[in-house]
Write a protein that binds this DNA or RNA. Sequence first.
DNA 1: AAAAATCTGTTGCAAAAGCAACAGAAAAGT
DNA 2: ACTTTTCTGTTGCTTTTGCAACAGATTTTT
Lengths: 209, 209
Amino acid sequence: MDLLNVSNFIKDYEDHCSKVQRKHFKKNETITTYIAKRNQVCILVSGEADLIRYDYNGNKTIVEHFNKYDIFGEVFYIITTNNELFVRAKQDCDVIFLVYDSLKHKCKSNCKFHQSLNENLSELILQKVTTLNSRIELLTKHSTRDKLIGYFSILSTRNLSKSFKLPFSLTDLADYLSVDRSAMMRELKSLRDEGFIEKNGNVVTLLYK
Amino acid sequence: MDLLNVSNFIKDYEDHCSKVQRKHFKKNETITTYIAKRNQVCILVSGEADLIRYDYNGNKTIVEHFNKYDIFGEVFYIITTNNELFVRAKQDCDVIFLVYDSLKHKCKSNCKFHQSLNENLSELILQKVTTLNSRIELLTKHSTRDKLIGYFSILSTRNLSKSFKLPFSLTDLADYLSVDRSAMMRELKSLRDEGFIEKNGNVVTLLYK
DNA sequence: AAAAATCTGTTGCAAAAGCAACAGAAAAGT
DNA sequence: ACTTTTCTGTTGCTTTTGCAACAGATTTTT
């Protein structure tokens, strides 16, 4: 599906349908907290945001990183008491809030946008599955080095370039890859020393192959 | 959605629609290999199966474990050349094969089952997302011990009991949790010695809380 | 029933990751 | 422009993980 289409759908949907909210968030604000049974689906219309989890030890994990038109929300989660999950704006963001159950049933005004969004939603969810699978692939790598290389090659592929900007600070990158920051820094240094990568600020360039 | 309904839908769909295949597999047979652009969606109708990945180092990972009515298939994946992904039957299995694109468009006979399956499919995909998110939660745990405890409490919750049967051999469990087998065995021993769990064969009982 | 293959449990040693702490750089807030 | 906060880069030390190897138990195959 074309991203522009999503945008148009959202615009139309918003105009015709109740149960849809659009909100603006400033940098660092909390967009939503994952609370069970809300059935919440969110679409990021502009900006960037992270889904963050703190577990019972206080360990922070960046579970996902969201860009324009990514969907997120508590419907996708089994909420347990051991975790606190919330989405934080990394820049100013616009977000559409929907209720999943209300999508499945027709709305009162029987609007055609309802059906359209419904169809598109399954496409968006499918995209989410592929994203999550890539994430799992990263996390199952056995070493910090393999995680770094794996993540870099994802970014490289996505940017169609050997050079790309990291969407995270290094501190956050460690939380995303689920590794110790100091160990990651060490590995990053080795990768540079061994000539695998180049790094200037938050721009990384792959030198291999 | 009720599982029985899925089953009925599948039965009806099969009877009315082309582009649907049902096949039987014996234990240890390969159900499917993930090859790009196939657009394949599979539904496990009976039996159990694992999605297995071998990376370029020959490292084996059990990416997912499938039970009755789980869906899987290459549509959910971005296939890279570094990986070999396939699904292996752990017992005799029955599997329905669909082509994702053909689901989105109406079939020639314009059958009502098409639409029904389509709707249900989005529900099934949503379920998949929640499963994958639980998996990510497991994999982001920092120690082998936390992974074991986390996995055990998932099984315990799912079985509504402090006791449950592991669906894996210990060798496979290590590949599923993405840890070294010997390290896992050590940790398992400590958990037993410290009185957190009990283990008889492949039945584990949680003793805490 | 015997042979082959796989799985479990264990160990010693090597390598990697985690922890804590700190100083300088950079960014954000006032 | 100055202050405060966060981020980067680094290190010494400890703990955990990974590797390789092996023997006995269990399961599967012939």
